[in-house]
Amino acid sequence: MDTAEFIKRLAADLQPVRPLRPPWARALLWLGLALLYVAAIVWRKSMINEASQVAGNARFLAEQAATLATAMTAAIAAFCSIIPGFDRRVLLLPVVPLGLWLASVGLGCVQDWLQRGADGLTLRADWDCLPSAIVMGIVPSVMLVIMLRKGAPLLPRVSLALGALAVASVANLGLQLAHARDASIMVLVWHLGAVAVWVAIGGWLGAFVLGRRHASSVR
C-alpha cells in the first residue's frame, strides 16, 4: 500500500487517547490496589497469626521491607519499560532491594543453623501455602497485565518478567503474614524459588501476553 494512502487510513482510524500517567504513579496505583487485595484476603481468612509476635523481630521486618521495595521497584521498572525512550538503567532498579531480600533470608538461614544446627536447615515439602499464594497472585497479575498492555511492547519479555517479580513479591508479603513463620531455608527454597519460577514464566510468556497490537482495520 502507498504510504500516503496508509497515512490517510491511520488518520481516519484515530481515536482520542489519554496519555499514560508517569510510570512511578502507575506503579504506586497498582501496588496500592494489590496490597489492599492481599490485605483483604489475609484479613478475611484471619490468617495473621504471628504478626504480633514477629513485630519486634528486626530481621523479619527488614525482610518484609525489602520484599515491599522489590515489588515497588520491579513495578516501576516494568511500567518504565513500556515507554519508548526510557532510560534502560531503570531496569536494574529492583536489583538492590532484591539483593537485600536475598541477603536477609540468607542471614536467617545462617542464624537458624547457628541456633539449631542441621535441624535449622531441614527442608520439607509444604504445599499448604500454594493455594493462598495463587489466590494472592491472580488479581495483581491480571491488573498488571492490563496496565502493561496499554504501553508499547518494546521488551515484552523483560516487562512481563519484571511485572511477575512485582506480583510474586506482593504475594510473598501476604504469605509471610498468612502462615506460620517458616524456617529461613523454607522461605529461601519455596518462596524465593517460586518467585524465580514465576519470573521465568513471565519472561517466557512476555511476547505472547504483551505482543504487538496493531490497528487491524488499517492494513
Partner: peptide
C-alpha cells in the same frame, strides 16, 4: 508509523517528541 499509532498513549506531552519516536 503503525507502531507509533498503537503506542500514541505512551507519549508524555511534557517530554521531547523525537527521542520518543526514534525509540
Amino acid at each position: 508509523l503503525l507502531s507509533l499509532h498503537a503506542s500514541r498513549a505512551t507519549y508524555d506531552p511534557a517530554r521531547p517528541f523525537l527521542p520518543w519516536l526514534m525509540a
